[in-house]
């Protein structure tokens, strides 16, 4: 995807691309990408697990909000001296993209303790939605990354491209 090259190039003076994959988004794709990460990321256990979890939640998110059965997702993992970035690019319908933007804006506006409370309440009292999920993926990503989720959407053919960018600082 041309747009993803453009987006990633913005970081290349500070970050190296350590993983990149473009696939049709399916459950098997997620399994494949996670297996790649397990075998290729040689970093400390807890940081690796944090990245693994964020990658999985982001990819499951693209699976839920994809624009069609043959939608593609691109994932890139970038590394600098002090941080990692996990970035996903996928297409979605206009309505889905607005919902996701609104949801992420709300999540980003919460403090850590408010976020933790919302996460806990959804897990304790929430119901599984029509998509078969509890809908706390973004809360979990923010809790794990301890950073705001950068999300942008733009026109792409007759759909919307969604770019989600999560920075994970190396403690």
């Amino acid at each position: 995807m041309h747009r993803s090259n453009e987006y990633i190039s913005f970081f290349l003076d500070r970050f190296d691309v350590i993983y990149r994959n473009i696939s049709i988004i399916k459950h098997e794709t997620i399994t494949h990408i996670l297996a790649d990460l397990k075998s290729s990321l040689e970093i400390n256990f807890n940081l690796k697990k944090k990245i693994y979890s964020i990658v999985n939640e982001l990819l499951e998110n693209t699976l839920i909000h994809q624009s069609g059965d043959d939608s593609k997702v691109e994932i890139a993992i970038l590394k600098s001296e002090n941080a990692y970035r996990v970035i996903t690019f996928n297409t979605s319908s206009l309505d889905e993209s607005y919902d996701l933007l609104e949801y992420s804006s709300n999540i980003n506006a919460l403090s850590h303790s408010e976020l933790k409370t919302q996460y806990k309440e959804k897990l304790l009292t929430g119901e599984i939605n029509q998509k078969g999920t509890i809908g706390v993926g973004m809360e979990l990503i923010r809790l794990k990354s301890k950073n705001k989720i950068l999300i942008s959407t733009e026109e792409y053919d007759d759909k919307r491209m969604i770019i989600i960018d999560v920075k994970i600082d190396i403690d």
Partner: peptide, 12 residues
Amino acid sequence: DYFNSTSTKYLV
């Protein structure tokens, strides 16, 4: 070893 956010709901 690992469980995603929806599995966490089911573990609760």
